[in-house]
Design a protein around this nucleic acid. Structure first.
Lengths: 234, 234
DNA sequence: TATATTACTGACCGCCCGGTCATTTACGCC
DNA sequence: GGCGTAAATGACCGGGCGGTCAGTAATATA
C-alpha cells in the first residue's frame, strides 16, 4: 500500500508532488547552466520523470522559468518585510539584522542563484524582469531606504540622499551573491561571507578615514557600532 | 579609385577591416542579447557581410566570443594601471581618479557591457572566465588594494583588511555597470552615475555616522574630502 | 476481476542555427 | 584586356532541443 513497496512498478502517480519537484530540478539546472543551456530533458530526468510529464504541468519552458522564479521569490521577500514591521530600536541594529538574515536565508541557500539568474536573463525576458523588479527589487529597495530614513531622522545617521545611500549599501550584498555564482571558482582566496558583511557594515557606518578620539556630542559612539558582535537573528 | 565610387559592386575586399567590424558587431549583439541568443547570421549582417565571411576570420562562435572579450579588455585594463604608476599624492585622490576614469572609459561606453557578459557567461565558458579573471579582475583588485594599502600606511585611512575593503569599494562600481545592463530599464528613477559615484566615495571615506565637529588631530579633515569637486582626469 | 479514468511515457516532428563548401566576384598584375 | 588569386557569398547540411501526442500502465471504483 505504501509507495515504498513498488517492487516492479515502472512509475507511480504523484500528481501533487510533481510540480514542486520539477521546479526544484529546474532551479538547480537554471542556476548551474543558465536558461538557454538548460535542456528540458535534463530537468525532467532530474525530477525523475519524462519530458512529456513536464508538459503536463508547465505549458512551456518560459512558463517553467517564471514558475521557478515566482515560487523561489515568495518566501524570500516576505522574511525581510516581516523584520521591518516588527523591529523597534536603533536603525543600525535593524540594518544589521536585515543584512545577516538576508544572507542566511538567501545568500547561503540555493535560492541565492536566482538573483544571478535574473541579472543574466532579465533582458531576454522583460516580462519576468519587470515582475522580479516589482515584487523583489523595489520592495527590497523600499525596505532599506526606510531603514536609512529612520536613522537619518533620529540623527543616528548623517543626512544624505537616502535613495543613493540605499543602493550603495545593497550593492555589495547583491554583488557578493553574483560573485559567488560566477567568478568565485576562479578566485584562489575565497571570501568569508561573514567577515565581508561585517566589514561592510563597519565601513559603511564609520568610513575609511579615522575618527577623532574625542567624540562626545553625537547620538552613539562609532567605535561601539563597529565591533559589537551581535548574536544573529533567528 | 577611392572605395566610395563602387557604383554597382556587390562587395569589396576589405581583409584588414573585417575582423574589427565583426567583433564590434558581435560585442553589440552579445551585450544586447547574451551569448546563446546571438545568431551568427545577425552578427555577420550587422557587420555588412555574410556568415561565410565571418568564418573566414573566426573559426567558431566561441572563438569570436573570446576575441571580442580579449580585444575589448586590452584598452580597458591598461588605462587603470597607467594611473597607478604615474600618481604621487594622497591615496583618496588617486582613488577618486581611478573611480571616475574607470566610469568614463568603461562604464559609459559600450565596453561596459563586457563585465555583464562575463558575469553571465563565465560559468559556461570557464576558460574565458579564467582568462578574464586573470587579465582583468585580479589586476583591478591588485590596483585598488595597493591604493588602500598606501593610504593605510600613511595613516590617511584606518587599518583594516585591505583585501575585503578593496572588494567592498569595487562592488558598488561594478554593480552599477551590471545594473545599467540589466534592471535599469525597469527602474523609473534612473541613477545619475556621477552622483552615485560621488556619494559612494563620500560614504566610503566618511561613513554613515556623523563625525564630531572638533577633529584637529588627524592627517586630513574628512569634511574636505567629501565635498571637494575635483576636475575629472583626462 | 472488470472497467473507466488519468498520470505518465517516449518516440516523433520540425525548426533553428552553428558550421561547410562549391561557386562567384573583386582586384592586383602584366 | 586577360589571368590568377583570394575575398566573399549563400545555399545547404545535420544535430539538438522545444514541443506534441498516441499509446500505456497505474489506480480508483464497484
Amino acid at each position: 500500500m505504501n509507495p515504498q513497496n513498488r517492487h516492479d512498478r515502472r512509475w507511480t502517480r504523484r500528481k501533487e508532488a510533481r510540480p514542486a519537484e520539477l521546479m526544484a530540478a529546474a532551479l538547480d539546472l537554471f542556476v548551474e547552466r543558465g536558461y538557454a543551456a538548460t535542456r528540458l530533458d535534463d530537468v525532467a530526468a532530474r525530477a525523475g520523470v519524462s519530458k512529456g510529464t513536464l508538459y503536463l504541468y508547465f505549458s512551456s519552458k518560459e512558463e517553467l522559468f517564471k514558475a521557478v522564479i515566482r515560487s523561489g521569490i515568495v518566501p524570500l521577500i516576505e522574511r525581510g518585510e516581516r523584520l521591518l514591521e516588527e523591529h523597534q530600536g536603533p536603525a543600525h541594529e535593524l540594518m544589521r539584522q536585515i543584512v545577516f538574515a538576508w544572507w542566511e536565508s538567501v545568500g547561503n541557500t540555493k535560492l541565492g542563484g536566482i538573483p544571478k539568474l535574473m541579472f543574466s536573463e532579465c533582458r531576454n525576458f522583460p516580462e519576468i524582469g519587470k515582475f522580479y523588479y516589482d515584487e523583489v527589487i523595489s520592495r527590497g529597495h523600499r525596505l532599506m531606504q526606510s531603514v536609512l530614513e529612520t536613522g537619518m531622522k533620529s540623527g543616528e545617521f548623517r543626512a544624505m540622499d537616502a535613495n543613493y545611500a540605499m543602493r550603495l549599501i545593497l550593492a555589495p550584498l547583491v554583488f557578493l551573491l553574483l560573485w559567488r555564482h560566477s567568478f568565485d571558482f576562479c578566485d584562489s582566496k575565497h571570501i568569508d561571507a561573514d567577515k565581508y558583511l561585517e566589514q561592510h557594515l563597519d565601513l559603511i557606518t564609520n568610513g575609511l578615514v579615522p575618527r577623532s578620539r574625542d567624540q562626545n556630542n553625537s547620538a552613539q559612539p562609532a567605535k561601539v557600532i563597529s565591533m559589537e558582535k551581535k548574536e544573529r537573528i533567528r
